[in-house]
Amino acid sequence: MLSDEDFKAVFGMTRSAFANLPLWKQQNLKKEKGLF
């Protein structure tokens, strides 16, 4: 599990902003970052 700081560094957004994205968009971002 990423820390909040690492999460923001990897995804360029906060966890709450990420959580507001549609599920497909979350999955695409995870795949792009190799976290899926």
Results as ranks from 00 to 15, higher is better:
Met1Pro: 12
Ser16Val: 12
Glu5Asp: 11
Ala9His: 11
Phe11Trp: 07
Glu32Trp: 06
Lys30Pro: 02
Asp6Met: 11
Asp6Phe: 08
Ser3Thr: 13
Ala17Asp: 15
Trp24Pro: 04
Trp24Asp: 08
Ala19Gln: 12
Lys33Asp: 04
Asn28Ile: 14
Met13Arg: 01
Phe11Arg: 00
Leu2Asp: 07
Thr14Val: 03
Ala9Met: 12
Leu29Ile: 10
Lys8Cys: 10
Leu35Arg: 10
Leu23Pro: 11
Leu2Thr: 06
Gly12Glu: 04
Met13His: 03
Asn20Gly: 09
Lys8Ala: 11
Leu29Val: 06
Leu23Glu: 10
Pro22Cys: 04
Gly12Arg: 02
Asn20Met: 13
Leu35Ala: 05
Arg15Tyr: 06
Gln26Tyr: 01
Lys25His: 13
Met1Ser: 12
Phe18Val: 02
Val10Leu: 15
Lys8Gly: 03
Ala17Gly: 04
Pro22Arg: 01
Val10Tyr: 08
Arg15Met: 07
Lys31Thr: 10
Thr14Glu: 08
Asp6Leu: 09
Arg15Ser: 05
Gln27Asp: 14
Lys33Ile: 09
Leu21Asn: 01
Ser16Pro: 07
Asp6Ser: 07
Phe11Glu: 01
Ala17Pro: 00
Leu35Tyr: 15
Ser16Asn: 10
Ala19Tyr: 15
Phe7Leu: 01
Pro22Ile: 02
Met13Glu: 02
Asp6Ile: 09
Glu32Ser: 11
Phe18Gln: 00
Gln27Trp: 09
Asn28Gly: 08
Trp24Gly: 04
Gln26Thr: 00
Lys25Ile: 14
Leu23Val: 12
Met1Trp: 15
Ala17Thr: 08
Arg15Gln: 07
Lys25Asn: 10
Lys31Trp: 12
Phe18Glu: 01
Leu23Trp: 13
Ala9Thr: 13
Lys31Ala: 12
Lys25Ala: 13
Lys33Cys: 06
Ala9Gln: 10
Phe7Val: 01
Gln26Ser: 02
Phe36Gln: 11
Thr14Asp: 11
Trp24Lys: 06
Leu29Gln: 02
Ser3Asp: 11
Arg15His: 05
Phe11Thr: 04
Lys30Glu: 13
Asn28Ala: 15
Glu5Gln: 08
Ser3Glu: 07
Asp4Glu: 12
Ala17Trp: 03
Gly12Thr: 01
Gln27Val: 14
Gly34His: 08
Phe7Gln: 00
Val10Gly: 02
Val10Met: 14
Ser16Lys: 14
Gly34Tyr: 08
Val10Asn: 05
Val10Thr: 09
Met1Phe: 14
Ala17Arg: 05
Lys30Ile: 15
Leu35Met: 13
Arg15Phe: 04
Phe36His: 13
Asp4Gly: 03
Gln26Trp: 00
Trp24Asn: 06
Gly12Lys: 03
Leu29Pro: 02
Pro22Ser: 04
Glu5Phe: 07
Lys33Glu: 04
Leu21His: 00
Lys25Leu: 15
Ala9Arg: 15
Phe11Pro: 00
Ala19Trp: 06
Phe18Gly: 00
Trp24Ser: 07
Phe18His: 01
Leu23Lys: 09
Pro22Lys: 01
Lys33Arg: 08
Val10Glu: 06
Lys33Asn: 08
Met1Ile: 14
Lys8Trp: 14
Lys30Cys: 15
Leu21Gly: 00
Ala9Phe: 12
Gln26Cys: 01
Glu32Met: 10
Leu35Asn: 09
Lys33Leu: 13
Trp24Met: 05
Leu29Gly: 02
Lys25Trp: 08
Leu23Phe: 12
Glu32Val: 07
Gln27Ala: 13
Gln27Arg: 13
Lys31Cys: 13
Val10Arg: 09
Lys8Met: 14
Ala17Ser: 06
Phe7Trp: 07
Gly34Ile: 08
Glu32Arg: 08
Leu29Ala: 03
Phe11Asn: 02
Asn28Trp: 15
Met1Lys: 12
Leu2Glu: 07
Asp6Ala: 13
Lys30Gln: 13
Leu2Gln: 06
Gly12Trp: 00
Lys31Ser: 09
Leu2Cys: 11
Lys33Tyr: 10
Leu2Ser: 06
Met1Thr: 12
Val10Ala: 07
Asn28Glu: 15
Lys8Leu: 15
Lys31Tyr: 11
Phe36Leu: 14
Leu23Ala: 09
Thr14Ser: 12
Phe36Ser: 12
Lys25Arg: 09
Ser16Phe: 11
Gln26His: 01
Trp24Cys: 09
Trp24Thr: 06
Trp24His: 07
Gly12Ile: 00
Lys8Val: 14
Trp24Val: 06
Phe36Met: 14
Gln27Ile: 15
Gln27Lys: 10
Leu29Trp: 03
Asp6Trp: 15
Leu23Met: 10
Ala19Leu: 14
Phe36Pro: 11
Phe36Lys: 09
Pro22His: 01
Lys30Phe: 15
Phe36Arg: 12
Asp6Arg: 07
Leu35His: 10
Met13Tyr: 08
Ala19Met: 14
Asn20Asp: 14
Ser16Ala: 14
Lys25Met: 15
Asn20Val: 08
Phe18Thr: 15
Lys33Thr: 07
Pro22Ala: 03
Leu23Asn: 07
Phe18Asp: 01
Phe11Gln: 00
Leu21Lys: 00
Pro22Gly: 01
Lys25Val: 14
Glu32Leu: 10
Ser3Gln: 04
